[in-house]
Design a protein around this nucleic acid. Sequence first.
RNA 1: GGGUCGGUAGCUCAAUCGGUAGAGCAGGUGCCUUUUAAGCACUUGGUUCGGGGUUCAAGUCCCCGCCGGCCUACCA
Length: 505
Amino acid sequence: MSQPTPDTHDLFAVRKAKLDQMRADGFDPFRANWDQTHTSASAKALYELGEEDEKEVSVAGRLTNIRIMGKAAFAKILDRDGRIQIYARRDALGEEAYRAFKKLDIGDIVGVSGPLFVTRTGELTVRALHYKLVSKSLRPLPEKWHGLKDSEQIYRNRHLDLIVNEESRERFRKRSAIISCIRRFLESRDFMEVETSTLHGIAGGAAARPFVTHFNALDCDFHLRIALELHLKRLLVGGFDRVFEIGRVYRNEGLDRRHNPEFTMLEVYQAYSDYRGMMELIHSMVQTVCHEVLGSTAVVNADGVEIELAGPWREASYLDLIREATGDSQWHKRSKREKLVAARKLGLALDPELEDFEVTNQIFEKRVEPQLIQPTFVTHIPRELCPLAKLNEDDPTVLDVFELCIDGVEIAPAYSEQNDPFLQMEMFEQQVGEETQNLDREFIAALEQGMPPAGGMGVGIDRLIILLTGAANIRDTILFPALRPWPARGQNELTTEREAPKGAN
RNA sequence: GGGUCGGUAGCUCAAUCGGUAGAGCAGGUGCCUUUUAAGCACUUGGUUCGGGGUUCAAGUCCCCGCCGGCCUACCA
């Protein structure tokens, strides 16, 4: 087959022409495979064991770098563990194979086998005796030195980001390790992992606008869940005394540095415990993750501020923190008007129509929470703020709950769970007001069956990952964050044209 | 939703006051058998996000739109 000369500036066409030529010569890389005996890391480990020289390995990965020097070449391949150098020379591979090697492109996926050796400059290298192209890369990779910087491309083309940006690869590896560690921690405490449904008739357990979807078979609308809470508590009623779920929840609200419309939540429920028990649980959990995954109890946030996670953590009541922020020890005795004036002094122009507790809570969210950088359990939270927790026995205006704040963000709320169906009904009615169709009567019926006293907690996993990896943005911790769908005519339209696969047989 | 900044070659970035759109990497050709962002020589490559306007002349100024970053609003 006469090789058509493609435009040398059309990187796709140049690579496609190489592929066509290979297929014409009887080799189709998309039908090939490779027997990988070692990764970059295990090959290094093997070499460091010492003993006899010239250990043979067979590695595979994506070519990220090629340096051709006449009759020999160095290249690097990237596999799941990292990079390893390979050395190809004409007299070892043979004339024909070496000529083909020189035609490889950065981004191609190859298998390479041969003995390990260390180069003059001290780098462990595989001396290629055999190699095979096992997947052709038709698109060029971003620049080798600067990587991919454009944040939109990073989010839209995460695969490119992962190939060229090592920090990104490491961050997601760490995310996986943290979640795995959390699972093992909870299992070691005899919690059982469950999966509850994501399609809810009534999206309860939190106050957030849900996404709506339509179920054709039943011809009715469903909501994507906004929390895991109510189903998990029904499992407590059912006798699963210690349950947890790690799953997606969906909230139809704005996007920003700390909010993605779908995010990962961990919820844990433990019968015969309470919010104090949850304090111990989250503290131990974070210590365990620090030791097993991070190897450190200190983390540094995106602003360079160090946060010390080793315990014990500060405990402060909601009202004390408000008093501290406003400098008013008699805050609880002030009228709403006085509170509004105080809010204004703190630079908050609040709507006078807000309820009294909402005014205070605005101060909490805008002026207190952002200041809670080191881990702090905020306790004694006003009852209006959460309808699902038990009232404090000594002061029924507050709840037996905490909110764990770190780095100015709420990481985990936990409650002594309300199990009195009458009080629960009352709280629900206050919450939903007129919209009684949003009142989850099935849940109330479950409570009427009798739910054991329990502690429960929700952990925003993505926010925890931000904290533990020092990420600047929730999108850097979510593999495929929400973005507006591609415009109809994008600059980067699909290049692969529809054509009969000629080389296929 | 509002404010603000941005979108230039496949990638990372330049382009003075409105006056012929450039560089590095990647790509192509040639040389080079231990390189490290390999090197050397030559070289291809542009709907300057899209549409309109002002002007002798627009990447640059104005208007509209698209996409994104940041701030803000919403947000248990």
